[in-house]
Lab assay of single mutants.
Amino acid sequence: MTEYKLVVVGAGGVGKSALTIQLIQNHFVDEYDPTIEDSYRKQVVIDGETCLLDILDTAGQEEYSAMRDQYMRTGEGFLCVFAINNTKSFEDIHHYREQIKRVKDSEDVPMVLVGNKCDLPSRTVDTKQAQDLARSYGIPFIETSAKTRQGVDDAFYTLVREIRKHKEKMSKDGKKKKKKSKTKCVIM
């Protein structure tokens, strides 16, 4: 069974824990209790493949930012979460993405942009803004509501699919490099 290491990042209060708990335990946590770091595991079937999701729910508070490099190193894919009623959390996505790329030393890291709290009427981040940002990053965008469960499975499952595509691409690139290195030079 394939294991996928997913990391949920975003500013404090955007609903990272609520999304994760909704996926794992099928219930909505409405009281806000700032996370330092929590880890969850769940076995699911995605596109006919049974897999184990190892999900790291991270601290959004700035005082825990020193811990970010460590979990970013171990993560295979990242859910970059903002709240649709919090423009600052949307603007912060850029910083999370840049930090992930720096730590992973790669421009090509599996990510999904997630606009959470889409059940709320007080939207300050337009869907088109988020779609445009995701398009500019070359990553999928999904709106979710941890409260109603809308888009929750889709967000995590899409990230797994992005990781699969990335692994497939990397193995193809690896095979191309191996083929090239088999060419021999004969000096007579």
Rank of each mutant, 00 (worst) to 15 (best):
G174Y: 02
T58Q: 01
K117T: 15
E143C: 04
I21G: 03
D173S: 13
Q150E: 07
Q61H: 12
Y96W: 13
E162Q: 10
I24V: 05
V7Q: 05
L6R: 00
S136N: 07
E63C: 08
T35C: 00
A59D: 02
D69V: 01
P110M: 02
L19C: 15
T144E: 03
K169A: 09
C185E: 15
D153I: 09
D154N: 07
D105N: 04
S39R: 02
A83L: 04
R149N: 15
K177H: 06
S17N: 00
L6W: 11
D153P: 06
I46P: 14
R97Q: 05
L56Q: 06
V7G: 03
L53N: 14
G77Y: 04
T58A: 03
F141V: 10
V152T: 10
T124E: 11
L159P: 02
V8S: 02
Q22L: 02
T2R: 13
E31D: 10
G174I: 08
C118I: 09
E62M: 05
H94N: 15
V160C: 14
A83I: 03
V125C: 08
Y40N: 00
I36T: 01
P140R: 02
F82E: 03
M72Y: 09
D126W: 05
S181Y: 14
V29W: 14
V9F: 14
C51V: 14
A66F: 12
V152P: 11
A66H: 12
G13V: 12
A134W: 04
E37F: 03
K184V: 13
M67W: 11
F82N: 03
G174E: 13
G75T: 08
I36H: 02
D69Y: 04
E91I: 06
S106G: 14
K175P: 04
Y71G: 15
P110C: 04
I163V: 07
V160D: 02
F141H: 05
K5C: 02
V9T: 13
V7L: 11
S89G: 09
L23H: 14
Q70W: 03
F141R: 03
C80P: 01
K169S: 13
T50N: 13
T50D: 09
D47Y: 03
Q43P: 12
Y157F: 10
Y157D: 05
L113E: 01
A155F: 15
Y157E: 08
K180W: 04
G13A: 11
E107G: 08
K5G: 07
V44Y: 14
E49I: 04
T35K: 00
A134R: 12
A11G: 08
E3C: 04
R135Y: 14
I163H: 01
D153W: 04
V7I: 10
V160S: 10
K88S: 14
S106E: 11
V81Q: 09
K176L: 12
N86S: 09
G75D: 04
K177C: 10
T2N: 13
F82R: 00
G75Y: 09
E63A: 07
T2A: 11
S136C: 08
C80G: 03
A18Y: 00
D173P: 04
D126R: 04
I84T: 13
L159V: 09
R73L: 07
Y137Q: 03
R164P: 02
K169C: 08
L133E: 05
Q22T: 12
M170L: 07
R161I: 14
I24L: 15
H166D: 10
I142T: 07
D173C: 11
A59I: 00
H27K: 12
Y32N: 01
R73Y: 13
V9C: 04
S122V: 05
V112Y: 09
E98G: 03
N116M: 15
R123N: 12
K175G: 13
K179M: 06
I84D: 15
N86Y: 01
V8G: 03
Y40F: 06
H166E: 05
S65Y: 09
G12V: 04
V14R: 15
Y32G: 00
Y40T: 00
K184T: 06
R102Q: 11
A59M: 02
F156W: 08
A146F: 00
N86T: 15
R73V: 11
V7Y: 08
G12W: 11
P110L: 03
Y4D: 12
